[in-house]
């Protein structure tokens, strides 16, 4: 493994950090998610920088970027595209929708109907769309960054658990701390939104990083730890639903990516713990008597499972 990869990734993080101040840990998680070839769900209130983050990520990776604002009358065709009859040559021509891009920002995904959501989610899972009997591959890499507003639940269609499971990670941005906010306020005159970011990782480097993730060594000890976590989430009344096998795989892949970002050729329990909240919180459901939310459940997993 070449140390150059860590430098590339750090540079990308630093670059994004110039537009989204004081959120380095979330930035790292978001980049980790994309490097692990996963889709990202950002859940937060409006105005916290969700769009800024996703746009910046696309820019530093040098990827094409499109944004769809989800509304309740959005139809699958509005995302996937449709065939239109051309009078000139008396034939149908396919007009690709916004999904034919490398980074798609699905803003406020829970505002659209389940029908539209599932059209998107199928594309996320398969990396391709099927329209009028014809399968069209999506460009690679293909990332979906979806945002969701946890408040204002009236007139929304929250994603069901089965679809939440398809997002590798869910992160929350939260309010900036005072220092970051001050810096943001000072810099606001310069129009940070408009600034184009430098491309830090080109496509070849991205492919190399993704290949390197597969090479990260995972020892039996670590697999034991991950399995203990999974087992704990499947027993005890606090959990209505435990971690699915897909969830466990996501945890492993994220941990490996995190290890790579830390310039290591082997993954550690520390890596697992670092990605644990983002990877598992949205997959866990509290059971009958448990009063906390997904993050409280993650805390339980972290506390109850012996590392060694």
């Amino acid at each position: 493994m070449s140390p150059g990869k860590k430098a590339l990734i750090d540079a990308a993080v630093d670059e994004v950090a110039t537009v989204l101040l004081g959120k380095e840990s979330q930035l790292r998680l978001a980049i980790c998610c994309l490097l692990a070839s996963g889709h990202l769900l950002i859940e937060d209130l409006p105005g916290m920088g969700k769009t800024t983050l996703s746009h910046a990520l696309a820019q530093v990776l040098g990827l094409s970027y499109k944004r769809v604002q989800f509304t309740s009358d959005l139809l699958p065709a509005d995302i996937l595209g449709l065939s239109i009859y051309h009078r000139n040559d008396h034939s149908f021509h396919f007009h690709p929708g916004p999904i034919f891009t490398q980074v798609l920002l699905a803003d406020e995904i829970n505002r659209s109907t389940p029908r539209t959501q599932s059209a998107l989610l199928e594309a996320m899972a398969e990396g391709q769309v099927t329209l009028e009997g014809e399968t069209r591959a999506l460009p690679t890499p293909f990332f979906v960054i979806a945002t969701q507003n946890p408040l204002e639940q009236s007139g929304t269609y929250p994603l069901p658990e089965s679809q939440l499971d398809r997002f590798l990670m869910r992160i929350e941005l939260g309010y900036p701390d005072a220092g970051a906010e001050r810096a943001m306020l000072r810099g606001s005159g310069e129009g940070t939104q408009k600034r184009t970011l430098k491309r830090c990782i080109d496509e070849a480097a991205l492919a190399a990083i993704r290949a390197a993730v597969d090479e990260v060594h995972v020892s039996d000890s670590l697999l034991d730890y991950i399995q203990r976590i999974a087992a704990r989430s499947r027993q005890g009344g606090e959990f209505a639903v435990g971690l699915s096998p897909r969830g466990v795989l996501a945890l492993l892949r994220s941990a490996k990516t995190w290890a790579l970002m830390d310039d290591r050729d082997h993954a550690l329990p520390d890596d697992v713990q670092a990605v644990l909240p983002a990877v598992t919180a949205h997959r866990l459901q509290p059971g009958g008597g448990f009063s906390g939310d997904g993050l409280a459940l993650v805390a339980l997993l972290r506390r109850d499972v012996d590392v060694v």
Binding site: L268, P269, D270, Q273, R303, D304, V305, V307, V308
Partner: peptide
Amino acid sequence: IAGETPGQ
């Protein structure tokens, strides 16, 4: 500390 890794 419960759940602490050896590194921590």
